[in-house]
Design a protein around this nucleic acid. Structure first.
Lengths: 161, 161
DNA sequence: GAGGGAATTGGTACATAATAACGTCTCTAC
DNA sequence: GTAGAGACGTTATTATGTACCAATTCCCTC
């Protein structure tokens, strides 16, 4: 995992991570579910990375940096919890996870993934979701979940190229 | 792999598979690429299944039914070829492959995947693609590839439920 | 504070998905 | 017919994800 240049300054980023963690805390409290130390740490790692993070990347940090004796199920359980409670999203095309920008309301985001810097931007465009619902409805299909993942070049990397 | 009830009669289905294979033949001839026996067989297997088929499912058929000594790379190479030439699509959320309905022109379909019967329906809605392009464009993101995979209940399974 | 049940985590083993690397064969153009 | 490219066989390995059971922790009740 090489470090990616961050879009915001380190200070901004730290702030935004701690904000996300605080919001997760209050959200879990309201839902009556437990954001344990392990789960919080996994959430922090996912948020600290601007690029989607693989389960085994998380596992490596827990083992090597935190000195925790962790095996795959430990990480996947934490990720399952975070997914269920809308705190992270899974990017199917990358087998990776990313922090959710709007955990306060249930939704399924759309993602723009830069093939160069690997940053993922979360969108939440009703127009996209509606176009899908409409097309599905016209063939009698009842939508339950949408996966929208777009690969390309982000504006920064376009300029650099 | 349990058999799924087919949307069309077996005869129709056989017809549609052989039609797809014939079209693939002529398409490859036009492109100057070789649709070898192995590649054609893999394409046939993918087409015969209404549900997306995993690489290892294909591998099992090649080994057990065809008696061919096949290992994973054999299957993945054939699938790579078929993907490159637009003859099959990959469903990222299922790690599986499905025959392309419109191989004659390059495109990336959208897929409706029934969680009950596991059938996948390919859409090709410009409205969806355009909604995505538009949203991406507004943040300066240059789209190169779209993954749209929708899970839910198909009309047959809704009625049955 | 003690007991008990549920939730959480630790840990092993395994299942599934995909690729690397190298050798051999086959097809085709010349 | 032969050289070169492309296709396939083969072995090994990496990457991703899950089943299962044991040990621990948390929280509620008494």
């Amino acid at each position: 995992m090489s470090k990616t240049p961050l879009a915001c300054t380190p200070h901004d980023h730290d702030h935004c991570v701690s904000h996300a963690l605080a919001e997760a805390d209050s959200l879990c409290a309201r839902q009556g579910v437990r954001l344990t130390a392990l789960r919080k740490r996994v959430l922090e790692l996912v948020w600290q990375s601007h690029r989607p993070l693989g389960a085994y990347d998380i596992l490596a940090v827990l083992s090597e940096q935190d000195g925790r004796r962790a095996a795959p199920p430990t990480v996947y359980r934490a990720l399952d919890f975070l997914l269920e409670n809308g705190l992270v999203h899974r990017i199917a095309s990358l087998n990776a996870f990313i922090g959710c920008n709007h955990p306060e309301h249930p939704h399924q985001g759309q993602f723009l993934i830069c093939r160069h810097c690997h940053t993922a931007i979360e969108l939440e465009q009703r127009a996209i979701a509606e176009a899908i619902d409409c097309a599905a409805g016209s063939v009698g299909f009842a939508v339950e979940g949408q996966t929208v993942e777009v690969v390309g070049l982000c504006s920064n990397c376009r300029e650099a190229a």
